[in-house]
């Protein structure tokens, strides 16, 4: 005999299916949009690279240094041209699985009438097996949908990590070297300082454009500060260095940004797509510092550009 529990169960499966199907459709739309955005970003990079001039009036040494920097920008622009291809490299999302028995189809069925009337079953012995079958079939469909959603998530995160992040990494390195170039120019060619500062602003412009795209898709940057305490949830240590100015496990340097997803995914907030890469201090003579006392930042304390 069908009881209320069964009826709630069938409704619950129907509801879950609708939610997941909607989610998968959203992912499909998002990938289509992302494809367009990737093209736009690539064009932006190319345009900025092509428009970047090195003025003839710069001293030859400075011209040579800037030519060298321009080569790095050319390579970033070249990498950006592959963004769309990298997005499509994975298998494209398929349509939601077919085979789900929708409520509409069971409209003429007393099961649904029962749901509507919120009544106890007295006539439905006959339909018990049918209800069980519907629940089973639909539950299988929900599982298939879940697999597709997970694939979409994976594809998106891989795009961020393997396609966008390397571009950002290159620009971040370029920006660090640019700072040194500005200092050098100030020392060696002070008359050209302003022009060089203007010239190297291209790194910021390109990074900002990548970041705009990331923000649109709810991806935040993890940018730990020098002196922040190492947090294995958000940071990936690449090297340990000695520096008595710092306590053990304090961050000495940010090597490359990390990325996190701002939307909730699998009940998890701030899912880390890629931790920030850092160098961490470890002095031979010091014991690990007391994190509480040293201003350790708790989970969820995430920097954003």
């Amino acid at each position: 005999m069908i009881n209320m529990k069964k009826l709630i169960e069938i409704s619950e499966v129907q509801r879950t299916y609708s939610i997941k199907r909607k989610l998968l459709e959203e992912w499909k739309v998002q990938f289509e949009e992302l494809e367009v955005e990737a093209e736009k970003l690539s064009a932006f990079f190319q345009r900025n690279y092509e428009n970047k001039m090195i003025q003839d009036n710069f001293p030859p040494e400075l011209q040579e240094l800037l030519e060298n920097r321009l080569e790095g920008i050319r390579l970033s622009a070249k990498t950006a041209t592959r963004l769309k291809r990298k997005l499509n490299n994975e298998k494209p999302l398929e349509d939601p699985p077919k085979g789900f028995i929708p409520i509409k189809k069971t409209n003429s069925n007393p099961i649904l009438e029962l749901v509507e009337k919120d009544n106890q079953s007295i006539f439905l012995n006959f339909f018990e097996e049918e209800v069980d079958e519907i629940i089973k079939v639909n539950r299988d469909q929900v599982e298939l949908l879940q697999v597709d959603i997970e694939m979409a998530e994976k594809r998106f995160f891989q795009f961020i990590e393997k396609a966008l992040a390397p571009i950002m990494d290159g620009l971040y390195n370029g920006k660090l070297h640019a700072k040194e170039l500005v200092i050098y120019t100030n020392d060696s060619f002070p008359d050209y300082k302003t022009e060089v500062i203007e010239w190297v602003s291209i790194y910021e412009e390109l990074m900002e454009e990548v970041n705009k795209l990331l923000k649109t898709y709810f991806v935040g940057l993890l940018i730990p500060e020098k002196g922040d305490y190492f947090d294995e949830l958000k940071h990936d240590p690449i090297a340990v260095v000695e520096d008595t100015e710092y306590h053990n496990e304090q961050i000495k340097e940010l090597v490359r940004y990390g990325y996190y997803y701002k939307k909730t995914i699998n009940n998890q907030k701030n899912f880390i797509i890629r931790p920030a890469q850092v160098t961490v201090v470890k002095n031979l003579l010091e014991k690990p510092a007391d994190k509480e006392k040293s201003g350790h930042r708790d989970e969820g304390d995430i920097n954003e550009v």
Binding site: R69, I73, L75, R82, D169, G170, L171
Partner: peptide, 17 residues
């Protein structure tokens, strides 16, 4: 394609990718 822009700076200040 293995592309790593601005990988390292040598002792003469030149950046290699």
């Amino acid at each position: 394609n293995i592309e790593i822009p601005n990988l390292i700076k040598d002792e003469f200040g030149k950046i290699h990718s």
